[in-house]
């Protein structure tokens, strides 16, 4: 019992450290990728090729003056940046990064908790991320943050539904909510082959849930100054960004587990490379895709965002579920 708890704690610590590494270098990757897409070099002066830039950013944010808007609602104003980071950290516990390793004669699965409702758990904890934006926007007691918070609430409800429906196809094929089962199912063939439409819908809805361009209306800087985080500074501001990049990492990890074969190698002759390395490579590919998307497409208009969600994506997701069910009945899977 105690040994199991210690092992779980160690696994969580390692995963958390890796997540924070991804967050720090995610910000650098964002600036590098944006730079190269715009024919610039991006950050270059801190360390070789700007590799120490995340450290410099962190130091700068620590030493900045922490300005608290005097008319803000203090409790929620302080609570919002804390909530921003929580969902991503909670989600870490159910993501399998590899099969299992044998250490000191003890078989250790490379997932903290293989629970049988893992996917629902992921949806449940990720639904808390909207509260950071809504509370942050409201408690600042300022016009632009409030507008950002309102936009975020409406956008989140619309795309949360679509995210859930897109995952449903995968659950039907595998017949389990457990992420470990879902990855095991993809040993010979990736899920994206069986569920291409679900993959596209998942990526669109996930981008919208992350408030990334082309769906970043809660923080549209040309209309709302900075959106929900306009009144935040110093580490509170940094917490929102920590949360955003942590959520990006976790969403990419979930996409890898659901659609891209998890820790399995894509080609059988490459299977000597350990699973976690494959997992990290695939995760980085999805992460890069999110960055690429941001620096390629212009922002949606708000009415377009809603129409796109309710009139196009929702019916498509429902058709995907119906088609999956139909094919399963035809093949006699039930």
């Amino acid at each position: 019992m105690i040994v199991a708890i210690v092992i779980a704690a160690i696994k969580l610590l390692i995963l958390f450290a890796v997540l924070m590494l991804f967050v720090a270098y995610g910000t650098l990757a964002e600036r590098k990728v944006s730079g190269h897409i715009q024919d610039r070099l991006g950050p270059y002066h801190c360390g070789p090729h700007g590799l120490l830039q995340p450290l410099a950013d962190g130091l700068k944010l620590f030493f900045k003056e922490d300005i608290v808007a005097s008319e803000s609602d203090k409790i929620l104003y302080y609570l919002a940046p804390m909530i921003a980071i929580v969902p991503a950290v909670l989600a870490l516990g159910v993501i399998p990064v590899g099969d299992s390793v044998t250490l000191f004669g003890r078989k250790i699965g490379l997932v903290v908790a293989d629970i049988n409702v893992a996917l629902l758990y992921l949806l449940a904890v990720s639904s808390f991320s909207v509260y950071a934006i809504v509370f942050g926007g409201w408690s600042s007691n300022s016009k632009y943050p409030l507008l950002g918070g309102l936009r975020s609430a409406a956008q989140f409800i619309s795309y949360e539904l679509i995210l859930g429906l897109s995952i449903m196809g995968v659950i039907m094929v595998v017949g389990s909510f457990s992420l470990v089962d879902i990855v095991h199912y993809q040993k010979s063939m990736w899920m994206v082959v069986y569920q291409p439409l679900a993959f596209i819908i998942y990526m669109i809805a996930a981008t919208a849930e992350l408030n990334r361009l082309p769906f970043d209306l809660p923080e549209a800087e040309s209309e709302l100054v900075g959106g929900y985080h306009t009144e935040y500074s110093s580490m509170k501001f940094a917490m929102f960004f920590l949360g955003e990049y942590a959520n990006m990492t976790v969403t990419s990890a979930v996409a890898v587990c659901l659609f891209l074969g998890g820790w399995y190698s894509p080609l059988s002759f490459l299977s000597w490379i350990p699973g976690p390395i494959w997992f990290a490579l695939k995760l980085m590919a999805v992460f890069f895709f999110l960055l690429w998307l941001r620096w390629t497409y212009p922002r949606f208009r708000y009415d377009q965002l809603m129409v796109f969600s309710w009139k196009y994506l929702l019916p498509l997701a429902l058709v995907n579920i119906l088609a999956t069910g139909g094919v399963m009945i035809l093949l006699g899977g039930i």
Binding site: S127, V130, A153
Partner: peptide, 17 residues
């Protein structure tokens, strides 16, 4: 989980909205 997804994730967001 469904309780959290439906009520905390959607309906409470509507209320706050």
């Amino acid at each position: 989980m469904v309780q959290i997804i439906v009520y905390a994730g959607a309906i409470m967001v509507f209320f706050l909205f």
